[in-house]
């Protein structure tokens, strides 16, 4: 069986992380912003799995399961706030919610 070198996995994780970070900066719709945070979290998770496989330890995958769980919790609270955002501002554009200045 051909094993994948761990550098390749890390590079993939790095690319995914950058895609997430870029779309976090560019996107204005709150749903896509939450999605890009999710991509970034999962990129970090992938890096953990790759590193765990490289060291032959289960820790990487354990960490990934924790990341999945916490990301789910984060998104559920996030969506509740999104509902409130839509109720108050009648839009999903985050630029609308920028009234506090100073």
């Amino acid at each position: 069986m051909l094993t994948i070198p761990f550098q390749h996995g890390l590079i993939l994780a790095g690319i995914l992380f950058s895609i997430g970070a870029m779309s976090l900066i560019i996107r204005r719709n709150i749903f896509f912003i939450l999605l890009s945070i999710e991509i970034m979290l999962n990129a970090a998770g992938l890096a953990f799995v790759v590193a765990g496989a490289h060291w032959g330890q289960p820790e990487g995958q354990i960490m990934f399961i924790f990341i999945l769980t916490m990301a789910a919790a984060e998104v559920s609270v996030g969506l509740a706030i999104v509902i409130q955002l839509y109720r108050r501002y009648k839009t999903l554009d985050v630029d609308a919610a920028n009234e506090m200045q100073g």
């Binding site: 994780a13 992380f17 997430g20 970070a21 976090l24 709150i30 912003i33 939450l34 945070i37 970034m40 979290l41 990129a43 970090a44 998770g45 890096a47 953990f48 590193a51 765990g52 060291w55 820790e59 990487g60 960490m63 990341i67 916490m70 984060e74 609270v77 996030g78 706030i81 999104v82 409130q84 955002l85 108050r88 501002y89 985050v94 919610a97 920028n98 009234e99 506090m100």
Partner: peptide, 26 residues
């Protein structure tokens, strides 16, 4: 709501950044 959205986005992004840092060290 505005404050919560701002904190949600930034805290989510920084915990992803923090995790990636941990992954690199690991």
């Amino acid at each position: 709501i505005e404050a919560a959205i701002k904190y949600l986005i930034l805290a989510g992004a920084t915990s992803a950044i923090l995790l990636f840092g941990m992954a690199l060290i690991y």
